[in-house]
Amino acid sequence: MDCRLGCGACCIAPSISTPIPGMPNGKPAGVPCVQLDDDNLCLLFDDDRRPTVCGSFKAELETCGTTNADALVNIKALEAATT
């Protein structure tokens, strides 16, 4: 499955514990990454500064569902289950 352009759920729902340019302490769950633009696209997508955890995320139907709203709900639930 390919990511849905403009979804951004994986840049909002999970916490990220590693530094992100503009967020040196990572980001808490539910907070949009500062590298997410107004169209919900990652400004670091093809950048070496993109955190490894972000680059390793793979879109899957089970996680992302069929809509952006599904993805946000599902990833929030995964975050809650793993913290």
Score class of each variant (00 low, 15 high):
M23F: 11
G22M: 05
G26D: 08
L36Q: 03
S15Y: 08
N25F: 12
C33V: 00
A13C: 13
I16H: 13
D37P: 06
D39P: 00
C11Q: 04
L36I: 03
L36S: 01
V34D: 10
D39L: 13
G6P: 06
A13S: 13
C11A: 14
A13P: 06
I12T: 13
K27F: 05
S15F: 12
I16V: 15
P32Y: 04
D37S: 12
C7R: 01
I12V: 15
N40P: 05
L36W: 01
C10T: 09
L43V: 09
P32A: 11
P24S: 10
A29P: 02
N25Q: 15
I20K: 03
V34F: 01
L43M: 15
I20Y: 03
V34P: 08
L43W: 00
D39R: 10
D38F: 08
C10G: 11
S15G: 15
C42G: 09
P19W: 11
R4L: 14
V31W: 00
C3V: 01
N40E: 02
D38V: 10
A29Q: 06
T18Q: 15
I16C: 11
N40M: 12
R4K: 15
G22H: 01
C10K: 08
I20N: 01
A13L: 14
T18I: 11
G26T: 07
A9H: 02
K27R: 11
L5T: 08
G8S: 05
G26E: 05
A13Q: 12
D37G: 10
C42K: 05
A9L: 10
D39I: 00
I16W: 04
V31A: 12
L5F: 06
S15M: 14
G22E: 03
A29E: 08
P28W: 00
P24G: 07
A13V: 10
N40K: 13
C33L: 00
L36D: 04
C42V: 07
D38M: 13
T18M: 13
Q35S: 11
D38Q: 11
L5S: 14
V31L: 14
N25H: 12
P24C: 08
D39H: 10
P21S: 02
C3I: 00
D37W: 07
D39V: 02
M23A: 15
I16S: 05
I20Q: 02
G22T: 02
G26V: 06
G6L: 06
C33W: 00
M23E: 15
S17M: 12
N40Q: 08
D38L: 12
S17W: 04
C7I: 03
C42E: 05
P21N: 02
L5A: 14
I12C: 03
P21H: 02
